[in-house]
Every structure is written in C-alpha cells, then in structure tokens.
C-alpha cells in the first residue's frame, strides 16, 4: 500500500514550520497510523532525514498522549478512536494524507506534530480534585451512590486529556475537557463540598490559559475518542453561573483556610 504524507515540520516552538511531502510504498492496511509513521521514520532516517516527532505512549487509546489532525479531522476519520488505534484500512491505496499538529494558542507546537498541553494540567491543578488527605476517609461503602449517578460520573471521567476537543473547536475552546472534570466530580457526593469553588477556579484558569469560547457547535463531541458529551459543558456553565452568583467576598476566615 502506498501513501503520500504531507506533514507539518517545525523544529521548535519559536521557529517557522511548513508542510513537507513524503511518500512511502511500505504501508500495510493492518498498521496503525503511528506504526505507519514508525515505518516512514525508519525510511527517513535511512536517507539521513530527521524523523517526524509525534507524541505517543501506550498505543492502546487510553494514555491520551497521541493525537494530530488527519485531513482536517482530529484523530482522523474513525469515530471514538485515537490515532494509535486507527488502522490504515480507513484509507485508500495512493491516498494523500495531511497531518498537522493540534493548533491552539494555548497548545504551542514543540516540534513537528508534538504540542505542549500543560495548560490542561494547570486547569486540573486549579481545582480538579477532591481535597482528601491519604488515610482520612471513612469506609468506602459508608457512602451510597446510585448506580446511575456513578455511571454518569464515569462517563465524564473517561476523558483522556488528549486535547482533540481543543483541536477540533474552531475557537480552540477547552470547554469539553474542563466540563468533563467539573462534571465527574460534581456528579458525585464526594465532590459537593468544593463544587462551587472548583467551578470558579477551573473556569477562571481555563480562561486565563487563553482558550476560546464555547460556540455550542459540537465539533469537540464529534471527535472525542471517549465520547464525552456537550452535556458536560452545560453542567460547567450551570455550576459556574451558580457559583458566580453565590460567590461571597473573601472573609478573614476564608483566608485562614487558604
């Protein structure tokens, strides 16, 4: 199987980049997209060309490391599939593929197809947790959680933080990512004590990182490899609205606690 690749090459964040064209006849329909790049890279190195840099780790669709645009679609044509599990069966012999990195101001390109998604970590650090020190909890079954609630929390918690939502959004919004974490914890009783504060801090951090607004158009949902839905964004909006209305001026006691 033969494929032509047009791949974004950029040596580092500050340097300009451009699309380069490569061809390989050693493709196999059973390969994953990342294995195709492995093969291409071996060929490039044989010719003394530096290999294409792309992020990857588990290669089974769960770590969230991999991801790039294939012909203008985040993670490529198969729904609910990351590029590491996308096989070449979805492409035709002789097809031309355009591979570009996630593009967002908040995701600077580090090299080629690799971007810096640390903004996501900072959004979590701003409040995407339950404050519980090791050793203090009660017995796990002392807290009853209806199965339906737990299942919905799990639906939201399935987010792998790959960044496809940002990449696919015309506004480069991180609402699906942030909404998923706010929903995951907000749907569970454990998340209630910090629910308002969490919504305020995470949404503010998301805004501070420079992501764009949510236009409610659903491109993020369509490319999300874990099927996270727009419902989670609505929940974030609701929590943020409520928390903003209820927010009280910081008192001395609150400062002590902080």
């Amino acid at each position: 199987m033969r494929l032509t690749f047009h791949i974004w090459r950029q040596p580092n964040t500050g340097a300009p980049g451009k699309m380069e064209r490569y061809e390989s006849a050693n493709m196999n329909p059973d390969m994953s997209m990342l294995e195709a790049l492995d093969v291409l890279n071996e060929e490039l190195m044989g010719k003394g060309t530096e290999p294409v840099v792309f992020e990857h780790d588990c290669r089974e669709g769960i770590c969230g490391s991999c991801g790039f645009m294939i012909n203008g679609v985040a993670h490529g044509p198969q729904s609910k599939t990351t590029v590491c599990q996308l096989t070449l069966r979805h492409f035709k012999d002789g097809e031309e593929l355009y591979l570009e990195p996630w593009r967002a101001n908040s995701f600077p390109v580090l090299k080629d197809l690799m971007v810096d998604r640390s903004a996501f970590d900072r959004i979590i650090a701003a409040g995407g947790y339950v404050s519980v020190p090791a050793g203090s909890p009660q017995d796990a079954n002392a807290l009853l959680i209806p199965k339906t609630e737990a299942d919905r929390a799990m639906d939201a918690a399935a987010c792998i933080g790959c960044g496809a939502c940002v990449a696919a959004c015309p506004n480069a919004s991180a609402s699906l990512f942030t909404g998923a974490k706010i929903s995951h914890l907000g749907l569970l009783p454990q998340g209630q004590p910090e629910r308002n504060e969490r919504a305020l801090r995470m949404v503010r951090q998301m805004n501070g990182e420079g992501f764009g607004q949510c236009g409610n158009i659903g491109e993020c949902e369509a490319v999300c490899p874990k099927g996270i839905t727009l419902e989670n964004i609505a929940r974030m909006n609701a929590d943020f609205l409520k928390a903003s209305v209820c927010e009280r001026p910081k008192s001395g006691a609150a400062e002590d606690a902080a």
Partner: peptide, 8 residues
Amino acid sequence: QAVAQGVP
C-alpha cells in the same frame, strides 16, 4: 481512599 477522591 480512592472512593473519597471521587474514583467512579
């Protein structure tokens, strides 16, 4: 511990 952290 995991349940208290919100592991679903």
